[in-house]
Every structure is written in structure tokens, then in C-alpha cells.
Design a protein around this nucleic acid. Structure first.
Lengths: 148, 148
DNA sequence: CCATACTTGATGTATATACACGTAACGTGA
DNA sequence: TCACGTTACGTGTATATACATCAAGTATGG
């Protein structure tokens, strides 16, 4: 395998991991900046959204849905728990299970964060327009639908 | 700001940060898996590519190009340096500057990694096809071109 | 020449991420 | 009922990421 300049340029332009990671670094920074008044990072905001969508869901299930390792979700949850934004409850039938629920404090912060999220969203999407982003998002989901 | 189900579904489908982060988690896992025999993660492979492309470049410059915080690059470099894949050299004129150069060991690992990278690349891109990915990548770059 | 502002990179701290491995609880067949 | 495999989650460890802050070198106006 050659290591010449042309080859490296081609890899930089085409590598899916590199291009996605770079984009997500930059985009996450924009959202984190916007959410700063709430003390939330966009990762945490996304988790709150998923708890509202799927209340009292099991962690493994949630992790699968988020395309995230179980243990990653576990640790990300602890951060929100420490801040009192979510509660973990042991399952009734199966005592191994942990159900996650957003607290009233969590709801408050979430509602405070939503307009800030929207501002970041508009700023970022504004670069290419909603239609192009909708198409892009669809393609992205298609790209990763076969993985894992 | 409402917190109803519809709203949350819409946020999940449209949030740029969430969709990019999710995609990059899944994609990175695929590449990391493929690169495992080399002990490299795809982030490290990408760094090696950039050192070949821009030999002896300054860290701040490189970080800017990679859309990465200076301090992130600094720490990621240390990992490669510990493994002896890159060397850091103090600048001649400006003693603050650090120039990064890939070592011969680094080249060896890079050449070993390249066919494995290609395999992951084909697996991931295969899901949608090269043309659609090329278009997608262009849109992605356009999306983030205004940030930072 | 020097005080000061600016540049370059490193450190402290915190979160995000995943793999390998460990532990407790559940289910099941003998 | 109990031994064993399976399932659900946590821990240890390592890397990735960024912000706030610090230290040192450089540039510049006086």
C-alpha cells in the first residue's frame, strides 16, 4: 500500500470516520456553546430527549437505540443522576433491570434548554438550509443502518 | 417550550449534533474493529494521514485544519509519541513551536493499516454506494464550513 | 532596552466513548 | 432443587474531546 501524497489526500476526502468525526466535533461545539447557560452538553440534552420519548426504558434497549455502547450510556447517565436530572429505579419483576426516568428538575432544565437548542439548530442548519439537511440526515441514517 | 412526544421525535430526527454523533459512533466502531490488528484507532490513523500530508507542521495549524481543539490534538499526539509512531521536534526559529513528524515505525504501521482501513471503508460506503457517499461528504463539508 | 500584549503549547478537570472483564439475577433442564 | 448458561448492569482501563487556566517564548511600541 503506497503512502504518497495523492493517496493521503484521497483518504482524507473519503474516509467516512474522519469526515463524520470532524463534522461532529465542530457541530457539537456549536451546540455545547449554545446550551452553556443550562450546564448541559448536547450529548446530555439528547439523552433527556430520549428519556422523554421512551420513559422507564431499560438501559441496554436504550443503548441499542442510541447506537451507543451499554457502558457508555451507563456512565453518561451517572452524570445526569448526580445533577438530579434523572432517577434510576430498579426493576420490579427483574431486579437486574434499571429503569431511567426524568425528574421534575430534569424537565425544568430540559425546557430551559429547548429554545437554546433551537437556536444552535437554526445556526447550524442555516448553513445549507432545512431541505438539504433533511436529505442529508436521511442519507446518514441510511449509511449507518447496516452497522452493528 | 413544550416537551411533548411529537416535539421530541422531531428533535431526534433533526438534531444535527445527535445525528452526527450517533453516526460517528457507529462508523468509528466499524473502523476501529478493522484496524484492531494494528493497535490503531481510526482517530490515530487519521492523524497519521495528516502528518504524511503536512509533514513538520505546527500543532495549532494542524488542529485548526482538523477542526479539533489544540489541547485535544496535543493529547492525542502523546499517545502516538509513546508508541514511537511520531516524533516531536522543537522549532528552530520559534522555540515555542512543536513540529510533528512520522517515524519509520509510524510509516510501517501506517502501511500495515492502510489495507485494513480500505476494507472498513468499503464495508461502510458499500451501504449506500460511492457516488452517494461522495455527495454526502460534500454536503457535510458544506454544513460545517461556516463553523469555528 | 524594556514593559506589555500576543502566541504556542501544556495541565487540570470533566465528560464521552468503548472494550475486556466481573458480578448479580434470572431461567432452565436434569 | 441446583448446576449452568444467559442476561443486565457495573468496573477497570485507555483513548477522545474541550474549556479554563498556566507558563514560556516572541513581537512590538515606547
Amino acid at each position: 500500500m503506497p503512502m504518497d501524497r495523492e493517496h493521503c489526500i484521497a483518504m482524507g476526502r473519503t474516509c467516512v470516520a474522519y469526515n463524520l468525526r470532524r463534522a461532529s466535533r465542530l457541530v457539537s461545539q456549536a451546540y455545547d456553546q449554545a446550551l452553556k447557560p443550562t450546564g448541559l452538553k448536547v450529548t446530555q440534552f439528547s439523552l433527556l430527549v430520549s428519556f422523554v420519548l421512551a420513559p422507564a426504558s431499560k438501559m441496554a434497549q436504550l443503548a441499542q437505540w442510541l447506537g451507543m455502547d451499554r457502558t457508555t450510556l451507563s456512565r453518561n447517565l451517572r452524570v445526569l443522576e448526580k445533577r438530579g436530572l434523572v432517577e434510576l429505579e430498579q426493576g420490579q419483576q427483574d431486579r437486574r433491570e434499571l429503569k431511567v426516568r426524568i425528574t421534575s428538575d430534569g424537565k425544568k432544565v430540559f425546557e430551559q434548554a429547548t429554545p437554546l437548542w433551537l437556536k444552535a439548530q437554526e445556526e447550524v442548519v442555516g448553513g445549507i438550509g432545512q431541505e438539504r439537511w433533511a436529505e442529508l440526515a436521511k442519507e446518514l441514517r441510511s449509511l449507518v443502518s447496516g452497522l452493528k
